[in-house]
Design a protein around this nucleic acid. Structure first.
Lengths: 108, 108
DNA sequence: GCACTATATCGGTGTTCGACGATTAAAGAG
DNA sequence: CTCTTTAATCGTCGAACACCGATATAGTGC
C-alpha cells in the first residue's frame, strides 16, 4: 500500500464524525444503515452526513448498495484489513529499535 | 484513547510528507534529525517543513530536544504504541463479524 | 403522471490547510 | 558585540474542508 493511499485513508478517518459512522456501520452489519439512519443518530444535517459518507466512499472504506428507495452502506472488510496491515506495518516500522533503511527492507 | 484524539492523530498522519518525516525520524533514531536535515531530503521550503513538524508535535507524535544551536526531533515511542493499539482496536472492532456495542465493550 | 421518500448535489459561508518568502529569535563562533 | 546558523513564526494566497439550507434526482406506490 502506497504512502499516498495510506495518507488518504488516514485523512478520511481523521474526523470524529466519520469514525462514528464507521463504527455504526460495523455495529449494524446485519441490516445495513442508510443515510437517514446515520443522520438520525448524529446532530448534523442530512447533507453534511451525506458528504461525510462520500469521503468514506472515495477513500474506498465503504461501499454503497441501492436497496429499494434507499442506499445502504457497508464496510469494505478486505480494504479495512489491508489498511489495518498497512497501519501495523507503519507503526512497527516506526517503533522498531534500529530501523535503518536496509534493515527496514529485510523486515518488510 | 478517545475518538477525538485518535482522529487528531489520524489527521496528523494523513499527509504523505508527514509520513515521510516520521519514517525518516525512525530511521535516524541514533543521531536524531534536525529541521534542516529533513528539509534537505524533501522538495519543500524550510518554513513548510517546520509547519509539518509542528503538526506532528501538536499531535504528540514527536518531541523536540534543543541540542546546541539546532533542534532535534525524536519519535514518542510510547505514544506511537498507544496509537498503534488504538488503531488495532479500531480495525478489529470494525472487522469483527458481530460487533454490537456491548460485545465491543467486552473485547476492548 | 403524481405524490412521497430518500439522498445526492449545488451554492454559500466561514475555517483550516499547504505552500511560500520574509522576518524574527536564539545559540555559537569569531 | 557582531556575524552566522538554525529554526520558529508571520503574512499571504489559493485550495480544501465542514457545515448548512435548498434544489435536483431517482425509485415506490398509487
Amino acid at each position: 500500500m502506497q504512502d499516498e493511499d495510506l495518507a488518504g485513508v488516514m485523512r478520511a478517518l481523521g474526523h470524529p464524525v466519520r469514525l462514528s459512522i464507521m463504527r455504526m456501520l460495523a455495529a449494524q452489519r446485519q441490516n445495513p444503515c442508510c443515510c437517514t439512519d446515520v443522520t438520525q443518530s448524529l446532530p448534523l444535517a442530512q447533507s453534511t452526513v451525506s458528504q461525510h459518507i462520500k469521503v468514506l466512499l472515495d477513500a474506498g472504506l465503504i461501499e454503497r448498495q441501492a436497496r429499494g428507495t434507499r442506499n445502504c452502506y457497508t464496510l469494505r472488510i478486505e480494504r479495512l484489513a489491508a489498511v489495518n496491515q498497512a497501519c501495523g506495518g507503519l507503526f512497527s516500522g516506526l517503533c522498531k529499535p534500529t530501523a535503518t533503511p536496509h534493515l527496514a527492507n529485510e523486515l518488510a
